[in-house]
C-alpha cells in the first residue's frame, strides 16, 4: 500500500489482500477503476461505502468520482443481494413472449420488487436486458440455472423449491 493511505472500516482479510494485489497489478492506474470495481464486487459480493472509500484512496480518485462510476453502471451492486438470486431476462424476445408476466408473478408471490430483495434477505429479483438465449424465450435464471420457454407457474415452482418458502405474504 502506498504511503499516506489510511485504513478505512474494512477488515484486513484475504479479500482485502487480493483486492490490494489487484490494484497494485494495475499499477494504481486511475483508468483501471472499472476493472477494480469488478474485482471488488467479485470478492465482496457488493460494493459498500467503506470499500468504495478504500478504492478511491488507493487509486487517488475523488470519492464522488468513484461513487459516480459505481452507480452509473447497472451491474455494480451497492446493496447486499439476497441469498438466492432470480434474474428474469427482459430482452425483446423474452418481453414479446411474456417475461413481464413472469416478473409480475414473482413480485406478487414473493413480495419483492424488481431490483430489490425480500425483507428476510432470502431472495433478490433482478431483470436484465437480454442474456442471449432469445430462441428459448422467455428465460429466467434461478441461482445460475437458466429456465427457458418457461411459464410463470413453472418459474414460481422452481423458485419455491430453491428458496424453500411457499409465499411471502404482503405486509
Amino acid at each position: 500500500m502506498p504511503d499516506g493511505v489510511q485504513q478505512t472500516g474494512l477488515k484486513t482479510d484475504r479479500r482485502l489482500t487480493l483486492l490490494e494485489a489487484a490494484i497494485k497489478k494495475h499499477q494504481y492506474r486511475k483508468d483501471a477503476l472499472l476493472e477494480i470495481l469488478h474485482i471488488a464486487q467479485e470478492l465482496y459480493g457488493y460494493l459498500d461505502k467503506d470499500l468504495l472509500t478504500h478504492i478511491s484512496k488507493l487509486l487517488r480518485l475523488p470519492p464522488s468520482h468513484v461513487y459516480g462510476v459505481a452507480t452509473f453502471y447497472n451491474l455494480f451492486k451497492l446493496k447486499k443481494p439476497g441469498a438466492h438470486v432470480v434474474t428474469v431476462c427482459m430482452g425483446t424476445a423474452c418481453y414479446v413472449k411474456g417475461a413481464e408476466e413472469i416478473v409480475s408473478a414473482i413480485e406478487r408471490d414473493f413480495n419483492v420488487k424488481r431490483g430489490g430483495t425480500t425483507p428476510d434477505g432470502k431472495l433478490s429479483l433482478f431483470v436484465t436486458r437480454c442474456i442471449g438465449a432469445c430462441a428459448m424465450a422467455p428465460n429466467t435464471i434461478v441461482d445460475g440455472e437458466t429456465i427457458g420457454k418457461a411459464t410463470p407457474d413453472e418459474v414460481l415452482k422452481k423458485i419455491r423449491a430453491v428458496v424453500g418458502v411457499e409465499k411471502v405474504e404482503a405486509r
Partner: peptide, 21 residues
C-alpha cells in the same frame, strides 16, 4: 481543483452528490 461533487446514477435518476452521496 477538488472534485468534491459529481453525479450519481444515470438518466432520469441522475443526482448531484458530494463525495459518496
Amino acid at each position: 481543483g477538488v472534485h468534491a461533487i459529481d453525479l450519481m446514477l444515470r438518466g432520469k435518476n441522475s443526482k448531484v452528490i458530494f463525495d459518496l452521496d
